[in-house]
Design a binder for these strands. Sequence first.
RNA 1: UGGGGCGUCGCCAAGCGGUAAGGCACCGGAUUUUGAUUCCGGCAUUCCCAGGUUCGAUCCCUGGCGCCCCAGCCA
Length: 542
Amino acid sequence: MSENTNFIHAIIEKDLENQTYGGRVSTRFPPEPNGYLHIGHAKSICLNFGTAQKYNGQCNLRFDDTNPIKEDTEYVDSIEADVRWLGFKWDNLFFASDYFERMYDCAVLLIKKGKAYVCDLTADEIRAHRGTLTEAGRKSPYQDRSVAENLDLFERMRKGEFADGEKVLRAKIDMASPNINMRDPVLYRISHTDHHNTGDQWCIYPMYDYAHPIEDAIEKITHSICTLEFEDHRPLYDWVLTELDWEQPPQQIEFARLNITNTVMSKRYLKALVDEGTVDGWDDPRMPTIAGLRRRGYTPEAIRDFCERIGVAKSNSTVEIGLLEHCIREDLQDKVESRMVVLDPIKVVITNYPKDKTEYVEIENSKDETKGHRMVAFSGELYVEREDFMEVPTKGYFRLFPGNEVRFKGAYFIRCEEVINDEQGNILELRCTYDPETKSGTGFEGRKVKGTIHWVDAKTAVKISARAYSYLMIEDEKGENVMNPDSIKTYAAYAEPSIAESKAEDRFQFFRHGYFIADAVLTTKDSKVFNRIVDLKSSWKK
RNA sequence: UGGGGCGUCGCCAAGCGGUAAGGCACCGGAUUUUGAUUCCGGCAUUCCCAGGUUCGAUCCCUGGCGCCCCAGCCA
């Protein structure tokens, strides 16, 4: 699959060479089901599944559902669908919550070893005892409880004898550690909350730092790949597995999470956009979610290619959104057909074309000859793109302007003879003439024109409401991402009739507008000039 | 001046002591029935800075500087 290698592959190859895990490679993608997956997760998905594939290993999809307050089955369903859509198959699907009993047993073991204790301090008190970045913490007054008492208390915690926040189970490590994560971290908290998977079976839930290494170990994961912010947690990850005497413990490896210009990746922020109704939902085409990108017309291939190109390293970086756009253009380039759509129309009347006549001209569906041709209606009344005409051309402009002749794609040379304006000077229509000699395909060589433009026949065109999407976020003067007030634009557009026959997943290329898919659509050729995505959904579907 | 990371072209990113890959962007030029695509060509004497070791350093050492992360009973 991938040609590129990264530092994680290097670690794995060394482990393979040393037979660290008996030649096994096993990874996992462990999302918490508290939101939809976004492009940042795609990087992790491609890394984990891709790495497993590369070394003939295994990769599990595991829901890290240890905090019932934030989790929901809606999210697990969407996550499964998105991973599958991206083109990956998990070897096993697990829920961290399925290991709760086993985790409980491990906690009991730690207590028996004198490595964990029940603490009655309140959250605030624990914080106060933890010390600061530069000062050591103080030990909890409950740190020296007997094993028997801890065992009893922990069991009663599980039985529901205490209220939320009344007690926690803590690891007994080192309150003076320069690494704050090692200052007797909380292992279990009490939360009388129903869990999406275990219902009301539990009222104590394990913390990430305690649960994750056990989850990995149970699944015999060899390389537990996560993001940079967990680097400081690694000593705790290792501590848990060491105290539990796990053989061939997995190793945690961290990489830099993905940042993209003009894009906010924070799940908290994205959820707020959805909850406040700022966007239509998690799958709004402007969202950086997998579901949003899918509606916007992105293909799994393009997203995977993007993840391959950005690489994997440990330095914080921000990839330009242009690279993602390049990937979708390149992918669609040779697998999609072209259609003519005029987003912002100007009427063109061809004065010397026979009244009431309609002829059909042949236009190729793609540069790829195997995709065939179609017949498109052409008559004396047409629409062309407003930006394909300039009443007063700038230097170098070679599309339509008074006195200039251009080719109408697949049809004739057309010359603009006259501009009809209203009192305000707005262009109402263009009076043009055509030259019958110049019909496409006849081999006319008499003269050349510099420009070719697309058009749509006025009588047969279907009227569509096209939605054009721009970036959801833009940078302000300080370089901070802020909401783009013009992230969406609607056009009363015209399209050739064949568009109306396309299906929800069909994608097309619009001349000079980029690409679109039926249910959403498209990205543009040049994001600086034609930065739009067209959503045809609302219009032609009904 | 607690600890953990990171600093190679505008943006990503290889490189791991032997004399700076690749991609995106950008700039030329050729083809072109859409100023697109395709196609050729250009684009870091230099790797955060300063010393040192070495025949030789982006890679090793020392000292600076800059940026990111950590004080949730979130993940």
